[in-house]
Design a protein around this nucleic acid. Structure first.
Lengths: 197, 197, 197, 197
DNA sequence: CATGAATGAGGATTCATTCAT
DNA sequence: CATGAATGAATCCTCATTCAT
């Protein structure tokens, strides 16, 4: 087994365990067992428990960024791009609930643990939304009075809360398409530049 | 000092400490010190650490529900009501960042800790949004094809992500009014029933 | 309510609680509740938890001593006296299992807790047995080669183990009479001076 | 150092510490220090403090059973067997006062702590006495009217009380032989079948 | 005398991390 | 590189005892 293999297996195991138990309740030995390595082996690849959390988060978000960029590269319509982003994000969260949970935890906890930790990957991810909105504004299909920096948060927050509820509650019977549709119903008309349409 | 006093002081101290450190990193002795009581005194009012978390959450959300209900009782316009809800929520979170953080933590962690814990107070709170949307649909000022159950999540998620960012990042220089305005720009036109207007 | 009343009620409650839970598992608040007094009230009558234990023991053993002395005062036959002692002890233990347990615990624990604590009352109690044996030796009905100091322990130990088993196990279906009879079968012939009979 | 070694060292340390302080006053850190391991190491071998107590008891009683069985296997005379049992038991208790105390504590406390705990090893041990008595009855050297189940308790109780006194009091100057002799003086003539002798 | 809320010292247990093998 | 036994610091919670009322 190659080292890269073990690193990947630990990341994958940690994603699963963090998602299931939450970062603090998760034990290093849980991750080790899930990854089928010895407890000590984990410390050959990561400095400590927090380091695993950050690595998990950055790797997984990094993948999302790449996937989103690839999916969007041939698309020029801002409305369509927003739709693609939302659909892909929700589909990814529905498919990999572990990841959704890890994002939830990570986003709310890491800053308390590691002072001044900056989620570069995450910022890059939601900046995709800001960029779509800006391009829509340049094309005059989105209203000028929308602040893309705030709108990206509002948009991501909406998607994120939906993902959260999926993982715990009754409302989980909605399909990705239904939800994507609902989100877009609101946001596309909400963002639309009525002056020019 | 009356008992009610001490209970309230512990809740308040816990809100502060949980917000600053996060639930798991927070120590009972931190809360005791903040509340200026002995460690053991906390256990006269709460069963255990989780019980404090739940109590903090429910009490604080309960207050939000009451405030929101009161602020909305004389208002009949659904658009106006949504505006009031958003403005009040964001103002409360900006004012009491501790509370915003406790909501963040609670919503993402308690279900992992205490199986089947149901946030009645929280559901009541966001159902206010669903009810506003439904009344807007009855009045035909909001689109019929919006699902209020999903929309309440989308709306709350947007507000919540905004609140989260306030507590950690650079973007905290926006005012409550600016953000409320942005959220409403999107949502009010997003929800608007164009067929009748 | 008179003070003597409360003292007695605490002793009685403590006997019950110690017997049920054991000294260390018993809580002062358990005793207070059982005695229907406030926790703090107990400290008006006793110095500390150990003091309660010792008081319970000495009072209860004191009663046994008085009862035994009274029952034996008109009896002159050493065999008969031994029989009376055994029958009364077993009957008392069967009737008041709490007391039996308190004796068990006390005898094995107090010396560890309070260095050099001497059970005067207890020694007085088992010395009744030694004295019966000595009188039997003077009357030449008991063998001379028996050491009364050891025999009192052997005799009491036999009775005590029987009492212990009563409180926990299956063998509790024997009656006091059956057991008294068995004990005397062994001890009376065991102690008998065959040279003169 | 092998694992078996550490397990044995902890058992031995616990026996010593429990005997000296009693189960409840004994601290896990006392046992750890005595065994020269870290506190946490104890929990690699035992589930909790009670588990240590039970393990100590069962292991030590198990040894007594084996020793007794071995010492008795070539003996056929019931009187002689009773003598051997008593002599060995008293010698073991005199030699290992810690063990004597652990038996005392265990027998009186564990049932309160762990509901329905059954001392299989202990029952096996005292059943040796019952079996000796039964064989003596078959050989018609012991009286028929003795109930072996009660007699085993009476006999063990006598031995046990003697052991108890050894560990705390003045009477500890008697030798094993003296005491064995006294116990047998009483019990052998007490059990003897006079009809046939 | 009586109360019971408050105290805070103390201890069993957990678990991230290390390191000898 | 890999292991997992061992470590021991760290913390939640209990409960005997106090003392203001």
């Amino acid at each position: 087994m190659k080292a890269v293999d073990k690193h990947a297996r630990i990341i994958s195991a940690a994603t699963k365990v963090f998602a299931k138990k939450g970062f603090f309740v998760a034990r290093i030995s849980d991750i080790a067992k899930e990854a089928k390595v010895a407890d000590g082996t984990i410390y050959l690849y990561f400095n400590n428990k927090y380091d695993i959390l950050i690595s998990v988060f950055e790797e997984e978000i990094g993948k999302l960024v790449l996937q989103a960029q690839k999916a969007l590269e041939k698309e020029t319509s801002p409305q369509k791009m927003l739709e693609i982003f939302a659909a892909r994000h929700l589909a990814a969260m529905k498919k990999n609930k572990n990841l959704a949970e890890v994002i939830q935890i990570e986003l709310r906890q890491t800053n308390k643990i590691i002072k001044d930790y900056r989620n570069k990957a995450f910022l890059e991810y939601i900046d995709i939304v800001a960029e779509i909105i800006r391009s829509g504004q340049r094309d005059q299909v989105f209203r000028d009075d929308i602040n893309p920096e705030l709108a990206k948060r509002i948009f991501f927050g909406a998607l994120d809360e939906i993902s959260r509820v999926w993982n715990i509650s009754l409302e989980s019977h909605y399909t990705v398409d239904e939800i994507t549709n609902q989100v877009l119903l609101i946001f596309l008309s909400g963002l639309r530049n009525e002056a020019t349409q």
